[in-house]
Amino acid sequence: MDSKRLSRWSDRNLKYLLLAPTIVLLLMLTVYPLVFALAASLQTVSVRTGERSFVGLANFASIFSDGLFWNALGNTAVYTGVGVSVEFALGLAFALILSESFLGRGLFRTIFLAPMMLPPIVVAITFKVIYMQKYGVSNWLLGLIGIKGMLWESGPQTALFSLILVDIWEWTPFMLLILLAGLQSLPAEPYEAAKVDGASWLQAFRHVTFPLLTPAILIAVLLRLMDTLRIFDQVFVMTGGGPANSTETLSLYVYQAGFRFNNVGYATAMSFVLLVLTTVVSNVFISRLRAEEVFTQ
């Protein structure tokens, strides 16, 4: 092969050669596990002998009659709904405050962002100590204002909300970060026009800030939704799903079924349901986001 032909061959094919390792690696890391999981979801493995047998869609069918699954789905929905809503409301409020100029703004920003830098496991262990019924600082503080005996993660009525509170503490800064970045990137002209038109702060927020901030809001809420739908660490460390199954989430149930009870097929089937759920919820936001982009263009 003379050098001219080699050069032509190289021009045409070098890109494929260079891309090949990455694509093979991607296929190994994404497609193979997905196909493997799909195959596993159609099988059952005996806990006594390890024998595998093909059961078709039986694992998926079992989900519908499994009370524990529906309980976990309900807990996950409450956790996601309440947690993300409060995080959004607080994140937006703090973002609006921190977008204004005042003395010590930089310090406040750093302090507000600190919780999200901590590993979730560390946060969970810390809050477990804070929530301790007799020795925890939370009940000591409440005692100072005359409230005594709060059960926190020990009570079936309060446990889920105690976990949500931890999530809010840790992840409101994430909302704050994205919304603050969104606020600071907004153009000044619409505000000047609104001011000339005599708009109040509330009117400017409602008719200028909120519509312009919508893409940032959608991204922040979407990322938090995807995260909370598969919440695991805090529940695993703080309550193990109790008391009375009041905090068992879908991810924890999938983990238990797969890794503690060796029902790999059933756990994989539930994982697919969780995947579909996350995809559907995400797509609602993604399609809205696309519409927003078209609108802004």
Partner: peptide
């Protein structure tokens, strides 16, 4: 038993 028993494990008992 102390309130909050529904979340107690061995280490909490030892603490008491």
């Amino acid at each position: 038993a102390p309130p909050g028993s529904a979340s107690f494990d061995a280490d909490q008992l030892a603490q008491y």
